[in-house]
């Protein structure tokens, strides 16, 4: 239905995806009949109220949850196979840095596990810490840094092994507005520089509109997609683009989509 299939370059494809959790209170339909195509280089935001399945969908892509129906492919493979091939980096809601490792040690963690050479590890750590503007903090421990810096370190960790897909689950949800604006700008720069495909979960409308080339509006009970908006905004986006007419129009459409989803309750 609300499917926007482009030619050839699909990276993530969901067809009639269903996921039902069996709980003590009976089945919970976390996702129902989700159809979506994400193309190479897209910046896709998932927005919706709590319980709409946006995080669950991202976790399905990462093979952290397993759908109970439909098909889901990542780079043409199943999510499990794609994970084995290190297809994606995942940024969680909290930074989730290991407190016994330094910042550099944390960024190095995936590289150690994936068996990169020692010299390569160091070079990559230096490069991604520079990318998130944390050079010079590699020797610090996570608890010595602010929340925003910790989250930047966790982004560096997800970037370290150079996966083509970056999945971000409300990465800035716990940060204040000012830090969030700054990190949003940085993510956009990062995306422009690396050309990665990004899946980004948020419940902030301005954040979704500011960042995305494609906005997926979802609604709860059961979790489903109610609208997919292709953003007409240019790739180059200064912060004050948020005062432009186009931006406000898209934000309005997202809000309408969210409201429509709620009226179904």
């Amino acid at each position: 239905m609300k499917d926007t299939t482009h030619t050839g370059s699909a990276v993530i494809e969901a067809r009639n995806l269903d996921l039902t959790f069996q709980t003590g209170d009976g089945p919970v339909h976390a996702l129902r009949d989700v159809n979506l195509t994400i193309n190479k280089g897209d910046f896709v935001s998932f927005i919706g109220p709590s319980g709409c399945g946006k995080t669950t969908f991202l976790r399905c892509i990462a093979a952290l949850e397993h759908p109970t129906g439909g098909t889901l492919t990542v780079n043409g493979l199943t999510p499990d196979e794609a994970r084995m091939k290190r297809a994606y980096g995942y940024v969680f809601q909290a930074a989730g840095l290991y407190p016994w490792r330094t910042i550099a040690g944390n960024v190095k963690l995936p590289l150690e596990i994936m068996g990169f050479s020692k010299a390569d590890q160091q070079a990559r750590v230096d490069r991604v810490l520079d990318l998130v503007e944390l050079s010079g903090f590699g020797g610090k421990f996570p608890w010595q840094l602010s929340g925003g810096m910790q989250q930047r370190a966790s982004i560096a960790r997800a970037l370290a092994f150079d996966a083509d897909i970056l999945l971000m689950d409300e990465p800035f949800g716990a940060l204040d507005e000012i830090v969030r604006d700054r990190l949003n700008e940085e993510v956009l720069k990062l995306w422009a520089r690396t050309g990665k495909t990004i899946g980004f979960v948020t419940h902030s409308i301005p954040e979704a509109v500011y960042l995305s080339t494609k906005i997926v509006v979802m609604s709860p009970r059961p979790g489903r997609i109610t609208d997919v908006i292709d953003s007409p905004l240019p790739k180059e986006r200064p912060l004050d683009i948020r005062d432009s007419r186009e931006f406000i129009e898209i934000a309005h459409r997202v809000r309408e989509g969210l409201r429509a989803g709620h009226q179904d309750d």
């Binding site: 994970r83 290991y98 963690l109 596990i113 994936m114």
Partner: peptide, 26 residues
């Protein structure tokens, strides 16, 4: 161990030994 820390290991497809040495023992 935190669920978040375990999920992280899962996204790296870490083996049992890697999880043990790098996450659970510390």
């Amino acid at each position: 161990t935190d669920r978040l820390h375990r999920d992280l290991m899962a996204t790296y497809s870490a083996t049992y030994t890697q999880r043990l040495l790098k996450l659970r023992l510390p």
